[in-house]
Structure formats: structure tokens, C-alpha cells
């Protein structure tokens, strides 16, 4: 309940503030999005598994974003930014798919 409300609050906040993303932050936006989706699916799955932990949820989200951004930043400096960005998206994408499948098993028992 709180999670849904907070999610809506975040969306409304984003819509109201409409912050302009600085140029240097732009390459990290897709990674942040994928990390956010991963955190959401992971959280829902953990909740269904009965092992949800708010601290883990928040820390994993923030650390995922930071680490992914760091990897891409490093890659950018070394000239492999695009490839590393793809790697991050692939890894997090696989996790999202796996978690979505687990959620599906929980919800539909199939």
C-alpha cells in the first residue's frame, strides 16, 4: 500500500517538477530506468516469496544504479561505454525477466 502510494507520489513529483536532465547525466538515464525496473520486480518477487526487506530493497536499488553508472562511466572513459551500457542492460534485463517469471508463478500458479 505504502509502496504504491510512494510510487504514485514519485511519478507526480516527476510530472510536477519536470526536471531537465543535464547532458552529462543523459547516458546514465536508461541504466537508471532498467535498474529501477529491476528493483521493482525484485521487490515484488521478494514480497511474494515472503522475504521482502525494505532496507535491502532501497540499498539494492541505489547501489545498482550507482554501480551500473560507475561501470558505464568507466567504460565511457575507456571507450567501451556503449558496450558496457549494453552489458548492464542485458544483465538487469535477464533479472527482470526471471523475476517476472517468478511473480507469474506466484500469481497464476503456472
Amino acid at each position: 500500500m505504502i509502496a504504491a502510494l510512494a510510487l504514485v507520489a514519485g511519478i507526480v513529483l516527476g510530472l510536477v517538477l519536470r526536471p531537465t536532465v543535464p547532458t552529462w547525466l543523459e547516458p546514465y538515464l536508461p541504466i537508471a530506468v532498467v535498474a529501477a525496473l529491476d528493483a521493482v520486480f525484485g521487490g515484488v518477487r521478494a514480497r511474494l516469496d515472503g522475504i521482502f526487506d525494505a532496507k535491502v530493497f532501497v540499498v539494492s536499488f541505489i547501489s545498482n544504479v550507482v554501480v551500473a553508472a560507475l561501470i558505464v562511466f568507466l567504460g565511457d572513459k575507456l571507450g567501451v561505454g556503449a558496450q558496457l551500457s549494453t552489458a548492464v542492460v542485458v544483465v538487469l534485463g535477464i533479472r527482470i525477466f526471471g523475476n517476472a517469471a517468478a511473480i507469474r508463478r506466484h500469481v497464476f500458479r503456472a
Binding site: I2, A3, A4, L5, A6, L7, V8, A9, G10, I11, L13, G14, L15, P19, V21, L29, A32, V33, A36, L37, A39, V40, G43, A54, K55, F57, V58, F61, I62, V65
Partner: peptide
Amino acid sequence: ALAVGCVLIGFTLVV
């Protein structure tokens, strides 16, 4: 913590 995390996620997605 949960609220902050969810706000962050929603904010990120919308931005």
C-alpha cells in the same frame, strides 16, 4: 525506507 525507494523509482521512471 520503502517509501523513499518507491518515490525514487517513480521519479526516475517519469524523468
